[in-house]
Amino acid sequence: MRKGEIIIRDVGVCFRLYREKVTTLKEAVVHRFRHLRSAENFWALRHVNVSITPGEAIALVGHNGSGKSTLLKTIAGVLQPREGEVLSAGRISPMIELGAGFDPELSGRDNVYLNGALLGFSRKQMEAKFDGIVAFSELGDFIDMPIKNYSSGMYARLGFAIAQDVEPDILIVDEVLAVGDERFQEKCKARILDFRSAGVTFCFVSHNLEAARSLCPRAAVLHHGRLAFDGPIEQAWEKYRELERGPMPGPQINVAAS
C-alpha cells in the first residue's frame, strides 16, 4: 500500500443494543446472563466498500444516523469493524473532535505536549513544533494559562492549531470547521487547502454542500449504514437530496439469533 491510501473492504460495524442495561455482576447473575442472549445487533455500517487513493479528497454525506461518523471512526482506528477490514497506510490526523484529550486543569503549553504525545509525537518533535502551534492558535500569553479559563473559541483554536501541525498523510475532519470566528474559519480552510495541494488524503463529513464542494470533487452517500452512492459530488448531492425526501424508516435493528 502507498502512504495515504485507504481501502475499506466490506466493512460492517455492529453495536450491541441491550434491552436491559446490565452493568453489575449481581444483575447479570440474577438474570442468568439473559442480557447476553437478548442483545440485539444494530449494524451502523454494513457491506461498505470504498477505495481512496493517496491525495484524493472525499466527502461523506448522509442524513443523521446514516453512519458517517462511525465510518470516520473506523478509518481512524477508534472502532474495530466486526466484518471486513479497513486498511490504511500513513499517519492519520483525526480532527473528529478538536481538543479531544485536553485536560482542563493543565496549561495550554502542557496540553500541547500531551496532545502531541496522544498523536504519537515525541517531546523533541513537539518542541520543534511548539512555536508554530502557538502562532497559529493566536493565543499569545494565554498559552500558559489553565485551559479551563479559555473561551470555547480559544479552546477550538488551540485544538485546530495542534491538529494542523502533525504532518498527516490522511486528514479526517468531522465538521469541525464551524469553530472560532469567520476569520479563523477562513484560516482553517486555507490550511486544509494547503494539505490538499501537498497531496494529503482527505476525508470530510459535512451537511454543507458549499463547504464540501470547495474541498472535495468526490462524495460517498451513506444511507442507513449502506453505501448508497459513490462518485462525483454533484450527482452525490442529488442522490442525497432524493434520499432525504424519501421515507425515513428510522434505524433498523436486527434481532440476533440466539
Binding site: 471512526k73 481512524a76 482506528g77 477508534v78 492519520i92 483525526p94 473528529i96 473532535e97 479531544a100 484529550g101 496522544l118 498523536l119 504519537g120
Partner: peptide, 8 residues
C-alpha cells in the same frame, strides 16, 4: 472521552 476519539 479520549478512547472514543483517538486511536491509542
Amino acid at each position: 472521552e479520549l478512547i472514543r476519539k483517538v486511536r491509542l
